[in-house]
Design a protein around this nucleic acid. Structure first.
Lengths: 219, 219, 219, 219
DNA sequence: CATGAATGAGTTTTCATTCAT
DNA sequence: CATGAATGAAAACTCATTCAT
């Protein structure tokens, strides 16, 4: 599925969260808003520009979204949930045991998965990261999703492998910070710092995971 | 030196870059602008709010800074240079040899130094990171300073220690990315994610450096 | 008949004036419009709020009333006629002679009648009074109904009792102004100034009529 | 002093209430706002029309008045105080005893005074009466000023003359309602119903007062 | 008949910038 | 240098009205 197609599909999913129906124009509005917000930032964007890019009258935006902020949140909020998606499978422990015999395997799968995710949604993620500092509503959601769900789940995993004697006995928090830093650093490099450079992803991922494991494997 | 004092001193230094003189009002304007930009973002701030917080008339801002963007750049631009300060000492190699016998020593010193730097200037750094994506002028500067000076210098250092056989033979770029990710991850955790939590800095820094070294030390 | 019932009946009567048929939706629209216009004023009300309160789609309003102003007039205009209703009985003189031997009797009956009328229709009357200054169409109607019919008829009555020697020889206009002022003052007090206060209506009416008569009875 | 002059003076007095200074443009804005609000009602007026009539840019209005509602209140609120002015002289009892030997004298003086007042300020009074039902802020002020100050003072006066045996023993509230109704009825007739008709004010006032006294004098 | 998405002109409000004092 | 009133262009938002379904 191409990046463009996956974006379209994603926008249609916003739908189900909202109320079940989404007009063609509404779709165009979301699409244009993502474009413009990502390019100029939320505060730097004007609803008139979004309307123009979407090919609708300015009033149409406000028929579907009470305020400009509403429009922002309707785009960014659902992305929060998507962020934690891979961590909310039931029977997580079973999956872990059967699919990921080592921490390294787990990290590898996670990395591939999140790289794909960012590739699909980098614009919305950019908007999200830009606006979290200024939108209390997003801050709350972020803390809830990341702070609660993801951190929780990752802790369990790390402790599981610690108990198996695979990784060193470091405070879980430091361990996760370290792991996350390297992974996020890699993703940021790929998409922010050098988006246009050639990139042997397969190799980069393997090397990066290797480095992480060097840092923390119990032998 | 307290954080407040260091900020005041820093603002006075902007001075030298500008034209050598800075009135009391001008000082107040910069101080207020940093406050407001950091809180609401550049595009979300109004010059009138800055004027009010600075205790000056609205027109006064424009007597010193031709436009609002000028005001932003006059704050953020000099910070760029500061960022690279520790890397532009002459006789760098000598300093390296005499002061930092190991890569670990170097990382430790760098970490302490940059932590202090961020502690002093976190508001301006926040503004800088927020605005780089939207201000071509800042992007250029950033690429120049980081991409050229810092990356260049860090590469030399990494290669120096590689050649000494202290760290593993990984492409320099990957090595730096890894190192920087872990260090930045730590700083971000400290100042963004959990600014109010208790924090044994000494210990955290040592553990973090240890992890990095685990990842890359050649044995 | 309760106040609510009388309102419903009244709305159905608008019907006959319009075209003879009135759908359930149309009824709801009128009901909602009265509510909203009375609460926020004509210019301060939005058709969308009326539609919402009526439980119909926005477009439905405009299917029945060409414009928002049309909706207003369809509510207020018929009320004008109602205002003069008690004055347009045929054989008025006969009724006067048989039913109201004195001016006092007449005033008493009128007062009771109009109090009831206002009690039933105070929302529409509020709208009417609010909008007369701004709607030329209503001004014309008002002048015609009040200025012509009511003033005319009241003059006849006043002169009739003057000729009977019951009330003093004052210019009819002054006489009517005086009478109307006291009566309207009483109604306004009851419904505008102190709508929630306990109120011995029987007594208040008798006292008020007494005062009026004191002012003008020929002895 | 002409009506126009008194209006100008009045606008300048708003000044003292606000903050002591008023620019030429601000004056023009108030002047235009009174004109437009009186003609079209508050909700029916647009700030752009006010700006145009005042000969200023639309932004100028909002430099002086934060919102359109602010502009309204800055015009109407001070009028509330003016309404009660004649009732807040100190030594009121003395004045009463020396200047107004009878209730009739008092009513006459009051009538002349309030007629003059309404003549000067009829536009603002029109705006005030139109907006009181829709502006909670004005409702509060109105209740306070009228309900407390004026009603209080008038009660004292009525009771004073009752105790002197000049007027009949009716509940004070009814007495005042009666008196006020006739007076307001007269003023309303003069300014609302027949503003353009010839009018022998001297005679009308005397007749009206006479009617009132007929109604209530204790013989 | 009824709907409600869409419109576009209009509304209130904001704001960077200018300029006379 | 400093002020702050004034501007006007643009922003966010509203709303009566239309029209395809």
């Amino acid at each position: 599925m191409s990046q463009q197609e996956s974006m379209e599909q994603w926008i249609h999913e916003l739908n189900n969260i909202d109320d079940g129906k989404m007009t063609q124009k509404q779709f165009k509005i979301i699409e244009a808003a993502i474009e413009v917000f990502a390019e100029k930032g939320y505060a730097g964007s004007s609803t008139s520009e979004i309307a123009q890019k979407a090919g609708v009258a300015e009033g149409t935006i406000f028929r579907h979204y009470k305020t400009k902020k509403d429009l922002l949140l309707s785009i960014v909020s659902p992305m929060m949930s998507k962020l934690i998606a891979p961590f909310i499978i039931k029977n997580f422990k079973e999956v872990l045991e059967s699919d990921y015999p080592t921490y390294e395997d787990f990290l590898y799968a996670l990395m591939i998965n999140r790289l794909e995710f960012v590739r699909k949604h980098h614009k919305i993620i950019k908007i999200m990261l830009q606006e979290i500092p200024f939108q209390p509503h997003l801050q709350t959601e972020f803390k809830q999703h990341i702070g609660t769900h993801i951190f929780q789940r990752l802790s369990e995993i790390a402790e599981y492998f610690k108990s198996k004697g695979e990784i060193i006995e470091l405070p879980t928090q430091e361990l996760l910070r370290y792991t996350a830093s390297v992974m996020i650093g890699m993703i940021a490099t790929r998409f922010l710092l050098m988006p246009d450079q050639p990139w042997d992803e397969e190799k980069e991922v393997r090397d990066t995971i290797r480095l992480i494991m060097n840092g923390i494997s119990a032998k």
